[in-house]
Amino acid sequence: MRLRVEQKGASGLADYEILEMLLFPGVPRRDTKPQAKALINSFGSLSAVLEAPAAALKEAGVGPACVRLLALMPEIAEKLSTPQTTKRADIGKWDKLLTYCHTAFTGLPAGQLRVLFLDIKNHLLADEPVMDMPDKTTKACVADILKQALAHNASALVTVRLVSDGLSRAQQMQKDIPFVQALLKAAPLLALDVHDHLVMRNGQWLSFRTMGQDEW
């Protein structure tokens, strides 16, 4: 039976054989096939055995260790069938945005452009770099960002530039203005809000929009 499981999985087993394997850890030196068949005959099906109260299983001759194991099966099945939700960072307030940026971007290469894609509640969906190489046009860079926004089903975004070597924060912002203006012009076509563009270096920042707002 072990070989069949290895080759075909549990789908290749009869119900009593699955139950037989579940009973085995509780009575490892005994043939569990007769007990497995008897339980299915008594309760009517494998699912009925797994959902049976502990008292009924004990009355049917199932030992304490096996009772505990069988009782876990429905709970495991329910857990596996429940969609797992990933907790997303909430960066809907200015201080939370800055804290996230300071934590996430420390040590990243200077000059890199990051995009924070947000859902309708300003929870972070994704934080991704944008390849804005010297030979890449502003239009192509904006197009890439919009494609990524569609892929993430984003409602809004924040762009963050890590100041390039040799530039001040003000110089970097001035250099990025054509890109930001192009993004602000294109984003509404996808009903996408551009909350802000930041330039950052060593924990200090400049904002394209009005700074110091509590929330967007």
Rank of each mutant, 00 (worst) to 15 (best):
T85A: 14
K93E: 13
D135I: 11
T137W: 05
V62K: 01
L125Y: 02
A126M: 08
A65N: 10
E128I: 05
A56H: 09
K139T: 14
L124C: 03
A54C: 06
G111C: 00
M131D: 13
T106I: 09
D135F: 14
L98D: 02
P74D: 07
P53S: 07
P64H: 06
K139A: 15
V130K: 00
P109R: 01
K121Q: 14
K87G: 06
P74F: 07
A77N: 08
C66Q: 15
M73F: 09
I145L: 05
P53I: 07
G92F: 03
T85L: 14
I76P: 03
E59L: 14
G92I: 02
K79W: 11
P129R: 06
Q148G: 03
A56W: 01
K121R: 14
H102I: 07
L124H: 02
P64R: 05
K147P: 01
N122V: 00
D132P: 02
A71M: 09
R88W: 05
A110T: 05
A126P: 01
T85Q: 12
A126F: 06
E128R: 09
R68W: 06
R68Y: 07
L124V: 03
R88K: 15
A110D: 11
E75Q: 14
L72D: 15
T106S: 14
T99S: 14
V130Q: 04
T106M: 10
V115G: 00
T138W: 06
D119K: 04
A60W: 04
I91N: 00
A65V: 13
C141W: 01
F105C: 05
K147L: 13
V67Y: 05
C141I: 12
M133Q: 13
A55S: 15
I145P: 00
A65D: 10
A77Q: 12
Q112L: 06
K121E: 15
